[in-house]
Amino acid sequence: MTDRATALREQGRDIISLSVGEPDFATPDHVIEAARAAMDAGQTKYTPVTGTMALKKAAALHFRRDLGIAADPANIIVTSGGKQALFEAIVATVSEGDEVIVPSPWWVSYPQMVRFAGGRVVPLRTHAHRGFRFEAGELESLITPRTNWVLLNSPGNPTGAVYPAEMLLALGEVMRRHLQVMALSDDIYAPLNYSDGPHATLANLCPDLADRICTVSGVSKSHAMTGFRIGVATGPGWLIDAMGTLQSNSTGNPSSVSQAAAVAAFEGPQDFLTDWREIFRQRRDLVVAGINAIPGLSTPVPDGAFYCFIDASDHMGRFGGDDTKLALHLLEHGVAVVAASAFGGKDGFRISFATDEATLTEAIHRIGKALA
């Protein structure tokens, strides 16, 4: 949809893109300066395959300070974006016929990674009226002897769902009863959490399960560094080593300049995040109110990230039950969104509110007009 929106803009069409998951803020100045300094100092050569020690130490600081995880730099890998870390963890462990439980709606790449490795995706359905969260019993009912991962994403894409501590503690109890099950926790949106209290993550709450938990994070969403392509992951040494072997034989090391910038991101000032969170919160409230005021549309209030997952069931008859046709209809009216079916959902669409309030107000107006 983003590519379609770009093509239409090049044809002179006025298109508002709410399809891409990317902060609209500028990368912080101290991060840009660190990248510039690294280039000036000639840090443009190969680094160790799994990342520089400077960045592993900075990532350990991030895991401890922001996620409450006591991560040893020796058990951290630096990857070319969080997506690569997720991919490597799955490919290193999933064999033909293995089962991976993935809560849906899910981020579009999760099921594709599992299928690439030969695994079978087992959807764990969640629903808007429960904040797109699941119960431990629902998870346990899907576990079989072939289950080896449950994928977690909190705050989540595309729903903005945040998993509370009590839910994760219950999940830990399930894992203690099923020793073959591991948890892959995607915490890339952790700094964009609007709920009360600190961010909750499984590795912090259940340290006795550390040998079966891999936590993925990065700088893309928190520091507006999507183009730098730096992710970090921590987990048991055997898994991090296996991921490093894959990385050595595929991409090699992440960008040396981007690694220097990420050190500054993790170790530098974090106070700007308070302002960013408040701006995102205001945008969220604007979008939720605006969408829920449009007849036939509804969305719960997301507790994190910068997405709203919108139900349009009342309108689907007009589009033959095909939410891709609905998304294309909205595109023709000047707004690019992503169909819910892309995320394993149905009868709706996802929008990103990572843009200014004036643009969001106009986009909501166009959506309402398109469906009137």
Rank of each mutant, 00 (worst) to 15 (best):
W276R: 15
W276Y: 14
E278W: 04
E278M: 11
E278R: 07
E278Y: 02
I279W: 03
I279G: 07
I279L: 14
I279M: 04
I279N: 12
I279A: 13
I279D: 15
F280T: 07
F280P: 00
F280I: 08
F280S: 12
R281C: 09
Q282S: 15
R283K: 09
R283N: 08
R284S: 09
R284P: 04
R284W: 02
D285N: 13
D285V: 08
D285C: 01
L286H: 07
V288Q: 03
A289T: 15
A289C: 03
A289D: 15
G290P: 05
G290I: 12
G290H: 02
G290Q: 01
G290W: 09
I291G: 06
N292R: 13
N292F: 05
N292V: 06
A293R: 14
A293C: 07
A293S: 15
P295Y: 01
P295M: 06
G296N: 13
G296Q: 08
L297N: 02
L297Q: 11
T299A: 12
T299W: 08
P300A: 10
P300H: 03
V301H: 01
V301W: 04
V301L: 11
P302Q: 10
D303V: 00
D303I: 00
D303E: 15
G304D: 12
A305G: 12
A305W: 01
A305P: 05
F306A: 14
Y307P: 13
Y307I: 03
Y307H: 11
C308K: 03
C308G: 05
F309W: 11
F309H: 09
F309G: 12
I310S: 00
I310Q: 05
D311G: 14
D311A: 13
D311M: 05
S313E: 14
S313Y: 13
H315D: 02
H315P: 04
H315R: 15
M316V: 12
M316H: 11
M316L: 13
G317Y: 11
G317M: 05
R318I: 05
R318H: 14
R318C: 00
F319L: 06
F319T: 13
F319E: 08
G320V: 07
G320Y: 09
G321M: 10
G321F: 07
D322Q: 11
D323Y: 07
D323Q: 10
T324N: 11
T324L: 11
T324G: 05
K325R: 15
L326Q: 12
L326E: 14
A327N: 03
A327E: 10
L328A: 10
L328S: 13
H329I: 10
L330Q: 08
L330S: 06
L330R: 04
L330V: 08
L331F: 09
L331T: 06
L331R: 08
E332W: 00
E332L: 02
E332Y: 00
H333E: 06
H333W: 05
G334Y: 08
V335K: 00
A336Q: 03
V338T: 14
A339C: 01
A339L: 04
A340I: 02
A340V: 06
S341L: 01
S341N: 09
A342S: 12
A342M: 13
F343I: 00
F343S: 05
F343A: 13
F343H: 15
F343N: 11
F343D: 12
G344S: 04
G344I: 02
G345R: 07
